[in-house]
Design a protein around this nucleic acid. Structure first.
Lengths: 185, 185
DNA sequence: ATTGGTATTATTACTTACTATAAATTTGGG
DNA sequence: CCCAAATTTATAGTAAGTAATAATACCAAT
């Protein structure tokens, strides 16, 4: 049955490209043992752009992602902020954030969200994290949306005490107490 | 003096390409107000590959970097490991790891090094961080090399107590106590 | 057995963004 | 003004495509 073969080939094509995206139609044709034209029809049907366009998109995407990771002082999206008092941020657990072995989110991402929120709430130009007490209550998995709420509970000298609680849909998954030190002079 | 102009143009070319690497020779020729062939000679002299090759390289580089950041279960290089007992990892603070405002390392990178080392030492296939007590003693800056030492100090049931101390050249900059929970069944 | 429709392959013309050479022209300094 | 380097123009060839059309294969059902 040709119809089935086509679907199978489409699947194989997508898989092949996701593992080696820099293949030409020629190479793909050889790999799948069909003609180049068939590959091109397949790409058309599947909406897969040509090699050069794919490459360009990958370069741009990856570049943008790198920039985002590198330069974001707040990990997660800040959705509410009362400077010096409280703040809320949302972060969705992506593929990149989970451990390969068990698909559970790496602790430092959850920590990063809480910690950077704590710093954002204070907006002290030179503030650094001093001490933190953190508790991971429930393992978090791929796809979960985490909502972190930070609250400044006390100030003593140049030390701020910030509590951050993180929930998923159902429950509190993480809880932390930070002491943030302001280096303002 | 043509010779100087050429050098100037070469410099301008390199700058332009570093800010917008996806320009064709045509676009570059227009921008620098010379012919396309001149641009090509320039690229030849400067060893700059053509647009497609540049794009491909960028895509690969960025992809590799992203993968390195995302999928490394151990942040930092594991240089010594006695399974179930202790481990040492080294991490150098790069550009990406510091805050823009003050060039001080973001806390979560230092945390990530310690936390992932703690997990690596245990090598439990399904272990997650439960509780952590952490103290950032000294701010860490760009370029510093951090050496984290982890030690398993106690085991109670499925809970492991791991201490991680992180030093730079001179002093201890970070100290943490983790309780890691093994989910083995 | 023939017909119809889908799938595949082939063919041709055209495009972009080049490389590689060679030839012609410009230009600035002695 | 002349010369050599720098620059521009010209020409042929390449890879990896798009787009469109035609030819063939295959399979299934009437």
């Amino acid at each position: 049955m040709a119809r089935v073969q086509k679907k199978v080939r489409h699947k194989a094509l997508k898989e092949k490209l996701s593992s080696s995206p820099f293949l030409t139609d020629d190479a793909l044709a050889e790999f799948l043992e069909v003609s180049v034209q068939t590959i091109r029809l397949d790409r058309l049907e599947l909406g897969i752009p040509e090699l050069r366009e794919r490459t360009r998109q990958m370069a741009q995407d990856a570049q943008a992602k790198l920039k985002a990771i590198a330069s974001s002082d707040v990990i997660g999206d800040l959705i509410d902020l009362e400077l010096g008092r409280s703040g809320i941020s949302i972060m969705t657990i992506t593929d990149d954030m989970v451990m390969e072995k068990n698909r559970i989110a790496r602790a430092h991402y959850i920590f990063a969200q809480a910690n950077s929120l704590a710093l954002a709430v204070l907006d002290a130009h030179a503030a650094v994290t001093g001490i933190a007490n953190i508790k991971f209550k429930v393992p978090v998995s791929f796809g979960e949306k985490l909502i972190a709420k930070a609250e400044v509970v006390k100030k003593r000298g140049n030390k701020y005490f910030v509590w951050v609680k993180t929930r998923n849909d159902q429950q509190e998954v993480f809880r932390s107490k930070f002491i943030i030190v302001s280096l303002e002079q």
